[in-house]
Nucleic acid binder design. Structure first.
Lengths: 140, 140
DNA sequence: TATTGTTATACTCTATAACTATA
DNA sequence: TATAGTTATAGAGTATAACAATA
């Protein structure tokens, strides 16, 4: 028996490959961390999402999320608005430049990952995403 | 288009699930980080492996690896030996307690991941490991 | 000259605790 | 009392640069 049978290990190893692709194609040129892109994209997909929900989705604490939102806010990529429904809460929204960035980056990522994983068949790539989503859905 | 189509994102999300499983089953009880287990297991699988090769395999710098090896060495889980072939190099080996730990942890991980992923079919689990390994093999 | 491994150092990211404001 | 979000702080993990020893 070996490390090759440990799913957690294989996920990390595969993540090294996709992470390097992200850094080369997006991270360096846009000075953007993976988590920063993910936050922006999640706001794009779920308008009015709150910092707390975002933190839970990405398995981090709210103080950490505050720090990331501060950085992205200073770069004018997103805005914090007071929630109307709950005076304690916030509602997050992309600025125009945030929207432009997210659309560009997503396109670049889809294309570069397609090249990166070109040695996999289409069926394998579909299967992979499907299985990974099943695993993620384990999260409470 | 959405984040769901980004392999890097799905790998991270699935990694949150397996990472939480590791922490609960192994990390907390044995006070062991995932990278620490991986280092020990790689030494077990590849006796006489060197710190530099280990660092490359795990995509980290040699000073980082030195720090991890220091910690594991202080816990008497591994030993550093001078390489006979190359006076600059080292050869890593598990101590007896390192060997016992690694064998126990690997067993616990295989069993707990099997439960964690029980909602996947056997075919899906095999396919997943196979595809992840294909992606990892992209690494130079 | 190049490589192995270590030390020194500073930076990034993180979590915990204590706090404010609202529910 | 509980929850949303912030601030303060300390710790973990990291990378870069400079170094010693060997090739």
């Amino acid at each position: 028996m070996s490390l090759n049978r440990i799913t957690g290990y294989q996920l990390v190893q595969a993540g090294i490959v996709t992470g390097a692709n992200f850094m080369r194609e997006v991270g360096k040129p846009h000075k953007l961390r993976p988590v920063e892109f993910t936050i922006l994209q999640l706001i794009f997909e779920t308008p009015h999402i709150s910092p707390t929900v975002l933190a839970k989705t990405l398995a981090m604490t709210t103080p950490s999320m505050t720090a990331w939102l501060d950085k992205l806010s200073k770069r004018k990529l997103l805005m914090r608005e007071k929630s109307i429904k709950d005076g304690r809460g916030q509602t997050l929204a992309l600025t125009n430049s945030g929207l432009v960035l997210v659309e560009d980056v997503l396109k670049v990522l889809l294309e570069s990952e397609a090249k990166l994983l070109a040695h996999l068949s289409l069926g394998e790539r579909e299967m992979l995403l499907e299985i990974l989503q099943k695993i993620s859905s384990t999260k409470s």
